[in-house]
Nucleic acid binder design. Structure first.
Length: 561
RNA sequence: UGACUUAUGGUGUAAUGGUAGCACUACAGAUUCUGGAUCUGUCUGUCUAGGUUCGAAUCCUAGUAAGUCAGCCA
């Protein structure tokens, strides 16, 4: 029988692996993932990619996903970030099964570390970090063993305990796994498991601990304690995997074990994604903060007008592979346009207003016209707009001497005023400097939208507002933050590569009056212009809109020719 | 010159030994009361060289190129 089912969307390699594991009956068919942020900064679109796979896999295969804060470095972490991270995850539409902290496992990790010492698999090294680094060798030169490597187990155990009492100053001792100093994998050359941090409290455990586990010892073991089956992370942890597996090999008690799988991180053109660089942008005042609408942070994108659906749409398009490429910023813009096109209410807004006078329209007359809220959505309904003799139109929509392909207002030509009448341009008035101050036209009363004559073919349609019925607004036009595709790869400092036009603030713009009562973050399509949302700093007294993304503009393209 | 990983149009991603497809971009055209959206079409691709096979983007070998790793960061 013929069927018209949509072709099955192919699985990405992680989904394929999970389905294979399920077929193999691995871990009794249990699927558990985790999203493990370090609470030391704000989440960005790259994290969103990780969140979507971590939570998405759990959701798709009836598993669970926990949120686990990887808080093993008290120097860098703060509660301040915990709340914003949770907010961003929920904004994306996900709910974790449990919230855990790596610091919840400090005792368990400690006991495990002692077991490693007792088993002769870890030792306390008293050398300086410089000495340890020197002995580590290089990728091409094998390392040499520490003189403390074969000290008595009892000695290591005593010293390890002292590392946690404050008796041992910072930097004087570390606990190291005893693996192989000649391994071609640097991470296997007796990696550090614990270091001492005495003069900084942990944001959750305070002064309880003086010895803190390193990522490699904390992360995999936390996965194991929690019962994670699929530990998904980005490509740079590939070389850590042998160590991840080695630790678990040493104490694994049943068939169960977590498996680490790496996927490509998200790189975006015209964007910097590293926490360090983003922090510099904030600290140098190059952006207004972490939630500056030009930032790739989730709070920045949210303020810019991106919706969770738009983010998901984008993440769906880019996929998960092991190839470390760079994604087009244009694809992100396409994703948000595609999403908002279906949902954004259309409104009239005139960003650069000039007065249009309909000379044959009765003075003082006001008509109430109807217009669609969204032609892409029949459910969206219609609303009323007021029409009168004097209107505002976009300065760009008039040219006194227009080229042939200019389909807008120019003397002697007809254009349609959206949802109103067809008008014929008759001229304009200029000031002494030649600036156009008024444009004149005559309307055809028989061409009101809905009337038979309104079906006349007219090339251009303009948006407009009645001068009687507008409210003023500030409009912030945002564009990509950098002028080069890959600021990180450029030899110049990335701060010199900032797009000087990434923000243009327009004042004296006009919008439909009802918009002043809409809540912050509401989003709209300014008809023929772009997608805009209401900035959180906006108020009924002072309306502020952010441009999320412009509409595609084939006239701009035509003009360039 | 070590280990690990990767290589499919300009970009991202499919094809799981059997017709190289999709999306974005670009470019045409149709259509349109948004120069938006929608629709149609066009351009452009399996890193190289060997091998296995009836058949290779896919498997093997070698090369080339790229990424990651030498924090008491994660």
């Amino acid at each position: 029988m013929d069927s018209v089912e949509a072709p099955k969307k192919s699985l990405n390699f992680i989904e394929a692996m999970v389905e294979q594991d399920l077929r193999d009956g691995l871990n009794n068919g249990r699927i558990q993932t985790r999203f493990p942020p370090e609470p030391n900064g704000y989440l960005h679109i790259g994290h969103a990619k990780a969140i979507c796979i971590d939570f998405g896999i759990a959701e798709k295969y009836n598993g669970i996903c926990n949120l686990r804060f990887d808080d093993t470095n008290p120097l860098k972490e703060d509660v301040e970030y915990v709340d914003s991270i949770m907010e961003d995850i929920q904004w994306l539409g996900y709910q974790w099964e449990n919230v855990y902290y790596a610091s919840d496992y400090f005792q368990q990790l400690w006991d495990l570390a002692e077991k490693f010492i007792l088993d002769g698999k870890a030792y306390v090294d008293e050398q300086s970090s410089e000495e340890i680094a020197k002995q580590k060798g290089t990728p091409t030169v094998p390392g040499t063993e520490s003189p403390y490597r074969n000290r008595p187990i009892k000695e290591s155990l005593e010293l390890f305990r002292k590392m946690n009492t404050g008796e041992i100053p910072e930097g004087k001792m570390v606990l190291r796994a005893k693996i192989d100093m000649t391994s071609p994998n640097m991470h296997m050359r007796d990696p550090i498991m614990y270091r001492v941090i005495t003069d900084h409290p942990h944001h959750r455990t305070g002064w309880t601990w003086k010895a803190y586990p390193m990522y490699d010892f904390a992360h995999g073991q936390s996965d194991y304690f929690e019962g994670v089956t699929h530990s998904l992370c980005t490509l740079e942890f590939e070389v850590h995997r042998p160590l991840y597996d080695w630790f678990i090999d040493q104490f694994q008690e049943t068939d169960y074990r977590p498996r680490q799988t790496e996927f490509n991180r998200l790189n975006l053109t015209y964007t910097v994604m590293s926490k360090r660089r983003m922090l510099q942008l904030v600290e140098d005042g190059l952006v207004s903060g972490w939630d500056d609408p030009r930032m790739p942070t989730l709070c920045g994108l949210r303020r810019r007008g991106y919706t969770p659906e738009a983010i998901h749409n984008f993440i769906d398009k880019i996929g998960y592979t092991k190839y470390d490429g760079i994604n087009d910023y244009g694809l992100l813009e396409h994703a948000v346009r595609e999403t908002l096109n279906k949902t954004a209410t259309r409104v009239n807004a005139v960003l650069d207003p000039v007065k249009l006078i309909i000379t044959n329209y009765p003075e003082g007359q006001v008509e109430t016209l109807q217009t669609e809220n969204n032609p892409e959505d029949e459910q969206a309904g219609i609303r009323e707009i007021l029409f009168s003799r004097e209107l505002y139109i976009e300065r760009d929509d008039f040219m006194e001497d227009a080229p042939k392909k200019f389909f807008r207002m120019t003397p002697g030509k007809e254009v349609r005023l959206k949802s109103a009448y067809i008008v014929m341009c008759t001229g304009c008035k200029k000031d002494e400097e030649g600036n156009i101050v008024e444009i004149y036209c005559e309307y055809d009363p028989n061409t009101k939208s809905g009337m038979p004559d309104a079906n006349r073919r007219v090339k251009g349609t303009l948006h407009w507002l009645s001068t009687e019925n507008v409210v003023e607004a500030e409009v912030r036009l945002y564009d990509r933050l950098f002028i080069v595709e890959n600021p990180t790869a450029d030899e110049r400092d990335f701060r010199e590569l900032i797009n000087p036009d990434s923000l243009k603030v327009l004042t004296g713009c006009f919008v439909e009056p009802w918009l002043k009562n809409e809540p912050a973050l509401s989003y709209f399509q300014f008809q023929r212009v772009g997608y805009f949302n209401i900035d959180p700093d906006s108020s009924a007294e002072k309306l502020i809109f952010n441009r999320t993304v412009s509409l595609k503009d084939s006239w701009a393209k035509e003009k360039r020719k």
